[in-house]
Design a protein around this nucleic acid. Structure first.
Lengths: 336, 336
DNA sequence: AGATAGTTATGGCATATGTCAATAACATTA
DNA sequence: TAATGTTATTGACATATGCCATAACTATCT
């Protein structure tokens, strides 16, 4: 019974405290983490050594994991190397492809893909990177799975104007979230995502501040974006980003998907319409010049869109799940 | 009962196997590791998904850990930052210091320090490093704690001639072991560690092959070595590396320790005798020019020797245990 | 001082993990 | 094809871990 703790008890406690009086500055968290993860000691034993209860040791270890003092990570290169990924790379011309085991519960798929996306970004990230960030549920979700890390001189920049519509995965939010986790410089694009006429777009693009932003975007070493299919309900209209009518124009022109600011058809041809003239986003040529163009996304209904995107070369790195990857492989094989 | 497995059973098994038929090339190990470590699923659940027993999942995870597919590591910078380490750095002028919690069982101390040493080396290692390796129990033990890793263009070189005596921690063994684990180029020094006269040493040092080796050593970016005290039995004489008489000469001259090929006294003065003229090892000037000189060692009886070594600036990075670190701090404070 | 609220540490229990000997699956040889 | 050795898989048990309600402690206020 815990209530029994009295002076006698306390004395006996002191006897076991010999090794590590807490006056030592050395972090108990660190201490426990070392003994547990490096030396493989049992929590009981560590509790003895530190003169605390096993439960406390558990708490210390928890803290160590939370604070990133211990890092448990899966070598991402192995995930890329997995057979399905490899086959898809060969068929599609992707330079890299990360494939997640498809979860049993489809509802968690999007979440888990963005989780893997976060790991992939972390693994590929290095000093002096400039990351162009798009917007969308997937990208926002990715930002939440990033563990705080610190590389010198990282820049995170918006590739699309800040949409004004009311939705919780705005370009600004995606960008700031990611920058925050990476302790990076955050460069927002202070312009609307869509304007009313081509003329307004021209005027804006000639504004010095916005011009500078697009110049910065040309320095991008990476971009991150999701991908949407156009059949059925999409968040493009739901979010108020564009009108149903504008979207229908693209559908009528044969577009099947949208990624990183551009529409494309089932064979990877970029589809343009009047809307492009009003959409403030990174120029296509600049986008295609970015060395690492990372697309995060997967779902059965997205397969057609992803295929088109891959053919359009919008992405050269893909993070997806196994079912989607397999469908894509099948898709490619059919065409041969 | 396992014997009961028959066709009926097999069929039911197939039913649960839907998700991951083993025909998929994707590594089950990787798959299990992802589900367990990234998604935090329980082994039971993973077993279901993969259609294998929980015990097998456990085995897969074990394999994943063994093969380094999952990495569990403690941020080494935190260990360096711990208070005792920091204080010792300031007092001694070390550029870095890694301090291990002193284990309860003194018999395991040497082993655990070399374990930490291995982690430290791994953490500091990067592409294009050239590592000068000394010999000794500690260094050999360190080599065994290295986990296989692969950086491009690492070179591992012996800093001392290959001793001919019979002991199991010879320079050659230390070097090859480390090179092997790091998948590095291994450059051995094809000469005895000690020769009979100064003249023989001169002749050897003028041999082109050996000359080249010493030129290579000047390119070292790191050295790794242990440290020995001279009072009591030492492995210097036990190993047949040098005679009792030769060692006594150094003791008489005031030497208290030996590290990285050189003797020094309690205040950090290098102590030389005739033996140095016959000892084939990296030149002292070259040694002191190496940017990272990592000494691995700790024990109550080594404190005096380590103090001398620190004063002699033979090391600028120290890996030790807390008791030793604390004793060193006390030692420094006494002198003020 | 005594009461109060907020924080940290603990005991004990439900669950998850690790171990191992037994057995199945497979490969090899006679 | 049977016998034999080798490796992988498993069920069952012993142990370690994760969790949470509550005790102990601390700081603050009356």
């Amino acid at each position: 019974m815990p209530g029994k703790r009295d002076k006698a008890d306390d004395d006996s406690r002191h006897a076991t405290r010999r090794a590590v009086p807490s006056r030592f500055g050395m972090d108990e968290v660190l201490w426990a983490a070392w003994l547990y993860y490096e030396e493989g000691q049992k929590q009981d034993k560590i509790a003895d050594q530190l003169g605390i209860s096993r439960a406390s040791v558990f708490n210390l270890l928890q803290k160590a994991r939370d604070e990133g003092i211990v890092n448990i990570s899966i070598d991402p290169s192995r995930i890329a190397r997995a057979d399905v990924a490899l086959e898809l790379c060969e068929l599609s011309g992707l330079s890299e492809c990360y494939v997640l085991p498809t979860p049993q519960d489809p509802a968690t798929l999007a979440n888990e893909i963005s989780h893997l996306g976060a790991r992939v970004l972390e693994a590929r990230l290095h000093a002096d990177d400039t990351i162009g960030v798009a917007w969308g549920r997937t990208v926002l979700s990715l930002s939440k799975h990033l563990t705080s890390m610190r590389h010198p001189n990282i820049t995170v920049a918006q590739i699309t104007g800040s949409a004004v519509a009311t939705f919780d995965f705005s370009p600004v939010l995606c960008t700031t979230n990611i920058a925050d986790r990476l302790s990076a410089r955050c460069v927002n694009l202070h312009a609307p995502g869509v304007v009313s006429t081509a003329q307004v777009k021209d005027i804006l693009l000639n504004e010095p501040e916005i011009r500078n932003h697009f110049t910065l975007l040309q320095q991008c070493t990476k971009t991150i974006f999701g991908v949407t299919q156009l059949d059925g309900e999409t968040l493009l209209e739901q979010s108020g980003f564009m009108s149903d009518a504008a979207l229908q124009v693209y559908r009528d022109l044969g577009a099947v998907g949208f990624a990183a600011g551009y529409f494309f058809d089932a064979e990877g041809q970029i589809v343009r319409s009047e809307f492009d003239e009003r959409h403030i986003t990174m120029a296509l040529d600049d986008l295609l010049n970015v060395p690492e163009r990372i697309c995060i996304g997967g779902a059965p209904q997205k397969v057609g869109a992803i295929y088109g995107m891959l053919q359009a070369r919008i992405a050269n790195v893909l993070v997806t799940d196994e079912t989607t990857a397999q469908s894509l492989i099948d898709h490619y094989k059919q065409r041969t």
